[in-house]
C-alpha cells in the first residue's frame, strides 16, 4: 500500500521545491489553502513514503500545542476590521499546520547522508563543508552523552542550573572546540583533503521521475492556490 516514491526523490530538488512551496504559501491568506497543504503533505507522507508513522505522531504531539496556542491567541487578539476573530484564529493556526506539514514532509522522507551527497553533486557544495557537516551530525550522540554528564556533574556538585544552562553550555562549548580540531585532524590523517578530486560511493543523480513527481506536486499546489484563493 505504501510506497517509498517520495523518499527516493533527489533530495536537493525536493529541498528547493518544498522551499518554493513554502515561499508561495506566504502570498496566500486562506485557511483552506493552509489545511489543503497540510492534508497534501500528510497524504504524501502516508502513501508515498515509508517513514515511520509512529515517529511522525510522536513529533507531532508538541505541534498540537503550538496549533492550539496560535488558535487561541488569534481568537483573542484577532479582532480586526476585515477578519472576524474566528477567521484570524483559523488562519493563524492552520498556517502553523501547513508549514509543519511541509517541514515534516521534507525531513521524514530525506536521508541526511543522501541530502549532503546530493548537495555536493547537484549544488556544487564544497566537500570540505559537506563532510564537515556529516561529521558533526554523526557526533550528535556523543555530544548528547557528554551533555548529560556535564549536567550530572553540576547536580553532583549541588550547583543550581537555571533555565538557561550557561554553565554546562560553557563546558560543552570548550569541549566542542577541542573536538572539532580533533575530528578535523583525524579526517586529514585519513587522506581527506577537502577538494573535489575524489570518488563517491554514493552518487545521487537527477532522474526524470524527480521532475515528473515534483512537477505534479507543484501543479497540485498551484491548483490549490487558485481554488482556495
Amino acid at each position: 500500500m505504501r510506497n517509498g516514491l517520495f523518499d527516493s526523490i533527489n533530495p536537493s530538488m525536493k529541498f528547493f521545491v518544498i522551499l518554493l512551496a513554502s515561499i508561495l504559501l506566504i502570498f496566500t491568506s486562506s485557511w483552506k489553502m493552509n489545511l489543503f497543504v497540510f492534508a497534501l503533505s500528510l497524504f504524501l507522507l502516508i502513501f508515498f513514503s515509508k517513514a515511520s508513522l509512529l515517529a511522525f505522531i510522536k513529533s507531532f504531539l508538541p505541534v498540537i500545542l503550538m496549533v492550539v496556542a496560535s488558535f487561541y491567541s488569534g481568537y483573542i487578539n484577532g479582532n480586526q476590521a476585515e477578519h472576524s476573530p474566528i477567521d484570524s484564529a483559523l488562519l493563524l493556526s492552520s498556517r502553523v499546520l501547513a508549514y509543519i506539514g511541509l517541514g515534516f514532509l521534507f525531513s521524514f522522507t530525506t536521508n541526511k547522508k543522501a541530502l549532503i551527497m546530493s548537495l555536493i553533486d547537484q549544488c556544487h557544495l564544497s566537500p570540505k563543508f559537506a563532510y564537515g557537516i556529516l561529521a558533526a551530525v554523526n557526533l550528535i550522540p556523543t555530544l548528547q552523552r557528554e551533555w548529560t554528564e556535564v549536567n550530572l556533574a553540576y547536580r553532583v556538585r549541588r550547583k543550581k542550573v537555571g533555565i538557561l544552562p550557561f554553565g554546562p553550555l560553557f563546558n560543552s562549548l570548550v569541549n566542542g572546540i577541542r573536538w572539532s580540531e580533533n575530528v578535523a585532524m583525524a579526517m586529514e590523517s585519513k587522506g581527506f583533503e577537502g577538494d573535489r578530486n575524489r570518488t563517491y560511493f554514493l552518487k545521487i543523480y537527477v532522474k526524470p521521475m524527480d521532475f515528473l513527481f515534483l512537477g505534479i506536486f507543484l501543479g497540485i499546489f498551484l491548483l490549490g492556490m487558485i481554488i482556495f484563493k
Binding site: K113, Y131, L134, A135, N138, L139, T142, W179, N182, V183, A186, M187, K190, G191, F192, E193, N197, R198, T199, Y200, F201, L202, K203
Partner: peptide
C-alpha cells in the same frame, strides 16, 4: 573523535573515496 561517518563501512568508503578508488 576519529570517525566522521555513522558506520565502519561508510568510514571505510570515506577513506577510499579520499584516494579516488573506483566505487
Amino acid at each position: 573523535l576519529q570517525f566522521c561517518m555513522a558506520t565502519l563501512r561508510e568510514e571505510l568508503y570515506f577513506c577510499m573515496e579520499n584516494y579516488c578508488i573506483s566505487p
